[in-house]
Design a protein around this nucleic acid. Structure first.
Lengths: 144, 144
DNA sequence: CTACATGCTACAGTTGCTGTAGGAGCAAGG
DNA sequence: CCTTGCTCCTACAGCAACTGTAGCATGTAG
């Protein structure tokens, strides 16, 4: 096992673009790849696992900064996982905040659109509401 | 009416930073300000209205590109408002898409966090799920 | 007269990539 | 043997929507 392969195969196996992998190496979330004689990056299963971890974390919305911390913690199995929990909880809070903010936008957009009678721009409720904050029902709740 | 004032007052009256106003002028969503003898930008109520429109649109999540289009349409009151509706509807769809994607993240994060028993990193469910996509309940639904 | 606030330009930095230019190596087909 | 085409390499520019900084000029208050 731990057969070596090149960046193209790592990309194909993880659904990650080649440039993105090189970018992860550049910013230090992926370790520098060992180079073959022709200067090409060679990878094995440990790289595959690490990149899978990164991609999954990204899909869950973690920042690369958080991921750097999570990877560092994952490499120290005997430490308590408080810090992991904290990163995850903070991120969950952030996700909830974003959902709440988007829902306010959603409500207001729906309201604007449903009030538009479809005439000319001068009658358009959407333009009116955008021009005058006071016509907006939720204008105190917006904290995007 | 239409008293002139400087950029600091425009900023204070709209809750927009001074640099942001200059940036809006630079990219052309705000018209170039008339300059006083000392080269300072002077504004009047039309600028105040325009910036209010921009800020409110931004609060509702519209891109500056969309806002450019909306402002151009707002300046042509006799045209039908189909295009306005279309921009607003497209944006609403995008907002809904984002909410759906964030909710998937939220569910999975909650699930991970609630499964963590609080021991060491080697037992941590959060790290395990991040490392192995198959432990993720919703991994097919993530399309952030 | 001296601070201090405000204004100006110009540019770098943020996040997480994506795309491009310009070049080299390698295998297969003609 | 040569060309075509694929993959790889580095280095850099660009996206969105700002925000912050440096270094300077101007205006006002005490």
């Amino acid at each position: 096992m731990s057969q070596d392969f090149m960046i193209g195969e790592l990309a194909a196996r993880t659904g990650c673009k080649v440039q993105t992998i090189r970018y992860y190496e550049e910013i230090g979330v992926m370790p520098p790849a060992v180079r073959a004689a022709n200067n090409r990056r060679m990878y094995d299963d440990t790289h595959l696992e690490r990149l899978t971890f990164i991609r999954h974390s990204r899909e869950l919305g973690f920042s690369l900064d958080d991921i750097r911390s999570l990877l560092a913690l994952a490499d120290q199995p005997d430490r308590p996982c408080d810090e992991v929990d904290e990163i995850a909880c903070n991120h969950l809070n952030e996700v909830e905040r974003k959902i709440a903010s988007l829902k306010v936008m959603e409500n207001e957009l729906r309201r604007m659109i449903s009030h538009c009678a479809g005439g000319t721009v001068s009658d358009c409720r959407i333009i009116k509401v955008l021009a005058d904050h006071n016509l907006c029902e939720e204008h105190s709740k917006l904290t995007a």
